[in-house]
Amino acid sequence: MRITQGAFSFLPDLTDEQITKQVQYCLDNGWAVNIEFTDDPHPRNTYWDMWGHPMFDIADAAGVMMELADCRKVYGDRYIRLSAFDATHGWESVKLSFIVNRPKEEPGFRLERQEDAGRMVRYTTKPYAADKPEGGRYA
C-alpha cells in the first residue's frame, strides 16, 4: 500500500532533481523549509520527528538537499517529508509538504470495526507497521 500524504502523493516519487526544483521554488518565495521523519505515517500523526532545525536563511536548494542526504543516511528506512512554511502573516502556515523518502516496503493499514451502543459502528485505521516496536517497523 502506498502512503498518500501531501502534495505529489499520487504521482511517482520525485527524483532528487525534481525535489531540488521544488525546494528552490519554496526558497524563492521566502518560505522556511524543514525536514521530518517517522516510522508511523498514520494520517493523524502530525508529530513527525524533526531533522535539525527549520532552515530559515538558506537561499540555495543545495543546502536543503545536503541536509536531506544526511537524513537519508541515518533514516533511509523511514518516511521523510519536506515541508515549507510561510511566516509573512506573523504566524507559520504550511504552504507545501511532500514525502521525499519511503521505506522499501510499505505494509499499509487495516480497518478495525467496533460495535457500539445503539447499533452504532465505529471504524479505526491502524497501521500494520505499528505492530512492531518503534525503530524496528521497517527493518
Rank of each mutant, 00 (worst) to 15 (best):
E134K: 15
L96H: 00
H89Y: 12
R81G: 06
R110H: 10
D16K: 02
L14G: 02
G63P: 00
I35P: 03
G135F: 09
G76S: 08
A32N: 03
R2Q: 14
L14Y: 03
G52I: 02
R110A: 13
T125G: 03
G136Y: 12
V64N: 05
F109A: 15
Y75P: 00
T20L: 13
S9H: 03
A69L: 01
R44S: 13
M120C: 07
N34V: 06
R110E: 15
N45A: 08
T38D: 05
D57E: 02
G52Q: 04
T46V: 13
T38A: 04
W91A: 11
F109I: 10
K95N: 03
E115I: 12
E106T: 05
N101V: 07
T125A: 09
V100H: 04
F10G: 04
V121L: 12
M65E: 02
G63H: 04
I58S: 07
L14E: 03
F98M: 06
T38W: 02
H89G: 12
D28V: 01
Q18S: 12
V121S: 07
N45H: 10
R119I: 07
A87E: 08
Y138K: 07
K126L: 15
M1W: 08
L11N: 11
Y75S: 02
M50C: 11
L111K: 12
L82H: 04
R119C: 09
M55R: 06
R72F: 01
G30Q: 03
T20K: 14
Y79T: 03
R72Q: 11
L27Y: 02
D39T: 08
T46F: 14
K126C: 09
Q5G: 02
P43S: 06
Q22G: 01
P127A: 11
E36D: 14
R137A: 05
A139F: 12
W48P: 11
G76M: 07
D86N: 13
V23M: 05
R72W: 02
Y25F: 11
D116C: 11
R137D: 06
A61D: 05
E92L: 13
L111Q: 10
A59P: 00
V94Y: 00
W91Y: 15
N101A: 09
M66H: 07
D86I: 06
Y123M: 10
P103A: 10
E106D: 07
G52H: 03
R122V: 12
D40I: 01
H42C: 01
E17M: 09
M50G: 08
S9P: 00
R81T: 06
R72L: 02
V94H: 00
L96W: 01
A130E: 10
K104C: 10
I19E: 03
F56K: 11
G63L: 01
V74G: 00
P107T: 11
G76W: 05
D13R: 11
